[in-house]
């Protein structure tokens, strides 16, 4: 039986048909050569797939580490300004300031208009008054 196998080339019928004859090189391989090739192919495939997975894992690890570093940095920055407390305090202060601003705007704007009107009136009265005074000082 062993002798028989040794002497006979390893044939795959379907491949033979697909190749269109008996002269396709792979088909006439000896069984141990075929097995060697298969083992090499599987090893190569395994290596390739592993390399691909490792690349993916490396990329994900890098992204994960970057996100973790970012989180740490943000947490550090937030802690430095006292985080939520600062935010609440800022919002409260903003509300108080908004009221103060409204009051100041409410006072300043009409006051400015009134002073401008008085100044304009005074600017017309002053020369007339000066002329009157000059006329009566003669």
């Amino acid at each position: 039986m062993a002798r028989k196998l040794r002497s006979r080339p390893f044939k795959i019928k379907s491949l033979q048909v697909a190749a269109g004859g008996d002269h396709f090189p792979l088909i006439h391989m000896k069984p141990h050569v075929f097995l060697c090739c298969l083992a090499l192919c599987l090893t190569s495939l395994s290596c390739e797939r592993r390399a691909e997975l490792k690349r993916e894992i490396a990329a994900l690890t890098a992204s994960f580490k970057q996100d973790e570093a970012l989180t740490r940095q943000y947490e550090k920055d937030i802690a430095a300004v006292e985080g939520k407390e600062f935010l609440n305090r800022s919002l409260q202060q903003a509300e108080i300031k908004q009221d103060q601003l409204r009051t100041l705007e409410f006072i300043n704007a009409p006051r400015e208009r009134k002073l401008s009107a008085i100044e304009a009136e005074f600017a017309t009265l002053k020369p007339a008054a000066e002329a009157f005074k000059a006329a009566h000082h003669k």
Binding site: L70, T71, E75, G83, F86, L87, L91
Partner: peptide, 19 residues
């Protein structure tokens, strides 16, 4: 990790905006 980073980023942005 990405979600946490996004959350912290949002918090930080809110703080900066308030500031």
């Amino acid at each position: 990790a990405r979600e946490t980073a996004d959350l912290r980023r949002k918090e930080w942005t809110e703080i900066n905006e308030a500031k």
